[in-house]
Amino acid sequence: MRAKVDYWLVPVGDAPPIEAIAADYQEQRFRPHWHEGYAVGAVTRNKQGFRCRGRDWIAHEGDLMLINPREVHDGYALDGGWSTRMTYFEPAAFAALVPGLRGSPGWFAAPVVRSSALFDLFREWHDSTRVGLRVERLAQTAPLMAALSRTMQMESPVQTVTDSVLRIVSGPDGPMPASAAEGTLADESARPSRTTSWRRVKASTGVSSKILSSQLRLSDAKRQLASGAALVNAALDAGFYDQSHLSREFASAYGMTAGQFRRRQVENADRMRTQPDGATAMPLRVGRPTSAT
């Protein structure tokens, strides 16, 4: 993976912080995954390919990418890589920031949006999140969230990972460990009812039960790391073979290692204890720098 990634966190009242990324990717390929919150990003150089909602999409320079909570997608380079600015909002944080919202904010209607006004507004807001203020205090936050809310609908997209899907995949004992997930196909023949359920899961999400089980383990490990858990403990508790296994899987889904993610989370927690009105002031650089044009 040849990439330059800057990663920082921006506090949002009492809600979980917004994750912000500015990245330049040359050969990156993200595995199918989902986020627990809303992903909002802009392509600032070249173009990016990704699969979502049962088809392939291309986001060109100047386009916005809008991904819903638990909406399965991947990502891959096209013709020389791409540069992007991304943000990840937990649902509670997103809802709290939409002016005048009552109830659920709904779902993004389309994963790619071309609007020069919205692109410019998002890019200006994204730049302003680096200055060290809570997001509520940034002048661009209210107009951006109002504009994003106008791209949404109340009907859910087809391929989201619902709670019922998670119950089927995880079973009564939590996320399937890696050793069990690798034997899924062999085990299915002895359990026709579960096989039928897993086929329905693939039809509704577009990915296999093995990929979904892996993502459940990643989500579990990510929550533990955000709470300050040690890498080895998070890896084993979430069902990975070891710390290295977690870091490889983490990087293929999120573009940084588990250790790099945990370090920024710990830094943010420490800073918020001493500077409750500020965000993480300095971004974390991940990966090997490459030149961006």
Rank of each mutant, 00 (worst) to 15 (best):
A226C: 04
N268W: 14
A221C: 04
I168T: 15
Y88I: 11
S291C: 08
F89S: 05
V286T: 14
R130G: 07
V72A: 14
V98K: 04
E36C: 05
R191M: 10
Q153S: 12
W82H: 14
A15P: 03
T84V: 15
S179M: 12
R51H: 15
V113W: 00
R199M: 13
E90P: 13
H126K: 07
A142I: 02
S116M: 08
A96M: 02
D127L: 14
M282N: 10
S227Y: 06
T160C: 07
P16H: 06
W57E: 11
E188D: 11
G81Q: 10
H35S: 04
L101T: 10
Q260L: 07
P175W: 00
K202I: 00
A180F: 12
R29L: 07
Q243F: 01
D24N: 05
T257R: 13
K202S: 12
L148C: 07
V5K: 12
Q140I: 00
S128M: 08
A92K: 02
Y38M: 03
G228K: 06
S116G: 07
G206S: 02
V266Y: 06
A96N: 07
A229Y: 06
G171E: 08
R29D: 10
D173W: 13
G41T: 03
R29N: 06
V131M: 10
G287T: 09
G278W: 08
R123I: 04
G171N: 07
W34I: 02
A59Y: 11
V232F: 03
G183Y: 09
S227V: 00
P289L: 04
G62S: 06
T44C: 05
E136L: 09
P91W: 09
A39L: 15
D163M: 07
